[in-house]
Design a protein around this nucleic acid. Structure first.
Lengths: 255, 255
DNA sequence: GCGGCTGACTTACGGCGTAAGTTTGCTTAC
DNA sequence: GTAAGCAAACTTACGCCGTAAGTCAGCCGC
């Protein structure tokens, strides 16, 4: 996740020769200058933004607060990021990239297309659950093109998907149809799942408490209250995915 | 939709020249004072907010602008609405209620549960497509309880759904499972559909123009560009819904 | 006539995104 | 050693935002 900044301690200029004596001495001794200020970078800013959203939610994120988190005035961010909107775009991109980095997600089918889509779906789900507060952003930010559907919203993703399926005997139409079915399946499931996650940690259960009062007129809800509260996200996801794959089997050959 | 503000021409001050006498006289004559100021009301405000979002999108909506649209200072809205957040909640509720008002949506199955779910799904889709800019709000606003899933996010809806299915021979578990499958199906499909709608009217097709340049490394996308651009939302929705109903047929008896 | 109520307007505060300008301190050239 | 160059940060300022608190005009029942 934050693997992009392995050298973030003291990156101020290649510094063939460190300016102040102290710094020199410290470097010579093999220590990192403890108070050396880490310069900003687009990466660092985006990472901090993702972290902030994961911790405190999207609405709390402001340029000023993000600057404070990085120990910097808000305006300093504008050297690396054009503005708030573009920052959010970058956050989305970072998260989408994270899906690609998942080692279990194969770029190309190696054990059949079903295995391929299974791994892909689970990889994306894993990332979504890692960022429950940020995932809605991935889902709802306007895409670059209307056919670039979330959560697979990068050209590279779509290309890999189509290539993978074509390689596995999908006709052109079938591959596109599979792409559409796959994305809307993922979006629906994952959005609801992260919403439930966020709600758990978040606010009050308004409906809950006076179960006998307010639910008097909702006998079915009251009766099924137990089942409604049970969390079957994982198996639900599995079952729906299984069903989708079966459906794609038909599409693959007929469409 | 916008029917709530029939008197929206000149709602500002009652035209100072005509004092109370004139008004009295008019009332005595049985006319409605033609320029009588329509008083604010929660309804009028929420309706205006929905209309504003449909026209100009959510991010442009501010209390000040909404006030201006209603011919009123921003602060006057606070007499009827606790604040911006609650106003958005009310907008969501209004849209959800609109689904219920659809004459084709039956409260109770009359021609079998499949017909019932078909009508329900289409009714909700209709409302979603009527408010493409506002629907994401319905999808992403935190619900009152985690099991109150969008887009069927009111107790009444869920109660009607469960009651309808129970009446049609669904076991308790099957009904709940159906509820979950149905909502995630709707959410995925409709969110993608309204996103595509919004994108059409909205911004630039960045990816599009230099099709031969930027897509050089994405041969599949370039080859399938035609298919990717085609709009099959309606049949896609139909097919997926059909598939879902078949799946629910199994769940109905076995689960 | 009057006191209070209703429904609007006015003022004010702190936070927001960000355009524009300014300071700081290291790097490099002479 | 000093001066020029320059990147990276800070400072100021503007207009918009949500909204707390106070004000004021007209209408009601007494």
């Amino acid at each position: 996740m934050a693997g992009a900044q392995e050298g973030d301690d003291r990156t101020t200029h290649p510094a063939p020769d460190q300016g102040p004596l102290d710094a020199d001495a410290r470097v010579a001794r093999g220590e990192d200058a403890p108070s050396a200020r880490v310069p900003l970078s687009t990466e660092r800013i985006v990472d901090a933004a993702v972290e902030f959203i994961d911790d405190s939610g999207l609405p709390g994120l402001s340029m000023r607060r993000l600057g404070a988190l990085l120990g910097v005035e808000a305006m300093s961010l504008y050297r690396y990021v054009p503005g708030r909107e573009q920052l959010l775009d970058a956050v989305v991109e970072r998260i989408v990239d994270q899906m690609e980095a998942d080692p279990d997600v194969l770029e190309t089918p190696e054990h059949g297309w079903q295995d391929y889509l299974q791994r892909l779906a689970h990889g994306i789900r894993r990332v979504a659950l890692t960022h429950p507060k940020a995932f809605p952003l991935v889902a709802s930010r306007p895409a670059e093109a209307p056919w670039l559907r979330p959560p697979l919203r990068s050209l590279r993703w779509v290309e890999a998907f189509l290539e993978g399926l074509a390689r596995e005997g999908f006709s052109d139409n079938a591959a596109v149809e599979a792409y559409r079915a796959f994305t809307s399946f993922l979006l629906g499931h994952l959005l609801l799942e992260v919403a439930a996650l966020g709600a758990d940690l978040g606010p009050l259960d308004v409906v809950e408490e006076d179960a006998d009062n307010s639910l008097a007129f909702y006998p079915n809800i009251r009766r099924l209250s137990g089942q409604l509260h049970e969390d079957h996200s994982a198996t639900e996801f599995e079952d729906s995915l299984e069903n989708l794959l079966q459906r794609l089997t038909l599409i693959r050959t007929e469409s």
